[in-house]
């Protein structure tokens, strides 16, 4: 499953298909996609999380979490990432540097920090995002196309409980 083209159309292709199938068109409707627990999850550009079952000839969309987490204190979300870590689905919000002094252009477009949320699935209620204060020994690598997590125990060159990010 991908978003592609100038408009960021959502499309998928199964093994054996001879062409891509467009699922949704629009102006960049999705921020990120991940495959998690045998389903594709898409993060809408307003933060809503959907799951897609593309096993049948008519793919089905299920709304998982409509209410996205927000940032407080004047911080503006710069980018959202989906990443799987130790079996959990994480949503990472990247925000710009926030400075009360509006006349400090040197800090424009600099990342100020991140907030990490975990999708908490409760049997009787809709799943919801819960802030995570620590990811233990995990290490996140956030990318424009895909994000991954690894264990700092297995890769001691990396710092635990840290997010490695690149310029987008």
């Amino acid at each position: 499953m991908i978003t592609h083209g100038e408009q960021g159309d959502l499309a998928f292709c199964r093994a054996g298909d001879e062409s891509w199938t467009i699922l949704r068109r629009g102006f960049r409707p999705y921020d990120d996609i991940i495959y998690h627990k045998e389903r594709f999850y898409t993060l809408g550009n307003h933060g809503g999380l959907d799951a897609w079952d593309v096993s049948s000839s008519s793919p089905k969309r299920t709304v998982i979490a409509q209410v996205p987490p927000v940032l407080t204190g004047g911080r503006v979300i710069h980018k959202r990432y989906l990443v799987e870590s130790s079996g959990d689905l994480l949503l990472v919000l990247r925000h710009d540097y926030f400075d009360d002094d509006a006349n400090s252009p040197s800090q424009l477009h600099r990342t100020g920090g991140f907030k990490v949320f975990k999708l908490e699935e409760r049997s009787s209620m809709n799943p919801r995002w819960v802030e995570v204060k620590s990811i233990g020994d995990r290490v996140l690598f956030l990318g424009d196309n895909y994000s991954v997590s690894i264990s700092a125990r297995e890769f001691p060159e990396c710092s635990a409980n840290c997010i490695y990010f690149t310029d987008d």
């Binding site: 990342t111 100020g112 620590s134 997010i163 990010f165």
Partner: peptide, 17 residues
């Protein structure tokens, strides 16, 4: 200005690269 680095979740600090 490049915008890349390592963010420490506990300390909420960024180490620029």
């Amino acid at each position: 200005v490049h915008d890349l680095g390592i963010f420490n979740i506990q300390e909420k600090t960024i180490q620029s690269c």
